[in-house]
Amino acid sequence: MDTDSVFDLIPIFARASAVTVWIATTSIFFAFTIGLLFSIALFFKTPVLKSIVHAYVAFFRNTPSLIQAYFVFYGLPKVSVQFNSYTCSIIVLSLIGGAYMSKAIYSGIKAISTNQLEIARAMGLSKFNMVVHLIVPQALSISIAAITNNSIFLTKEVSAMKIILLPEIVYQAFAIIGLRTDLTIPVAVLTVASYLLILLPMSYLFSRLERKIRFAEFGG
């Protein structure tokens, strides 16, 4: 590597950070969508779907992301399904995140009083209207803290995708150190700085969102 000063490392980390942010936000979006749909399926005890969701959550929460990525990236081509490392990362992280989000949002739904949903039924509201106007808004505001945690977790989990050669922050850091051991300390500092630059604003945005949609004293 033709790097003479520490400052030459900065563009590399900027590009790697952009990759991390792009993969993370896309995965958070899909994970959230999966979580929302699956938690509603769990709530309504949709017969077959319910078992599928349970099996899915059990699998993705209880196996390392590294291995999941490895299987999708190196395993699926054996059956002629091939993705590049970007697509593959998004698929794996969305599925892991979806499992976590399902549980988080489901616990939010469960916290809504059953009396309230019963009176909605007594009013003649359809299931669809109950989901849109009562269940989703309340479940999200109850579980926003857990959703925030999962989002931060997923962003850090992007680093596991170095195993499938995604040029994200940790991948680049290891690559540089592999060539230039004398740069270990500056690389470590830049790695930490990159994560803080991504995650601190993200945490701030989520806490803003949390304050905005949170309404105090549930059911009071």
Binding site: S113, Q116, I119, S126, L134, Q138, F215, E217
Partner: peptide, 20 residues
């Protein structure tokens, strides 16, 4: 039942207003 429930209202002990 939706048709019936339009015609028969219900009020319960725990009010059950939608808190949000």
């Amino acid at each position: 039942w939706v048709d019936i429930r339009k015609r028969i209202g219900m009020v319960s002990q725990s009010y059950d207003l939608f808190p949000h």
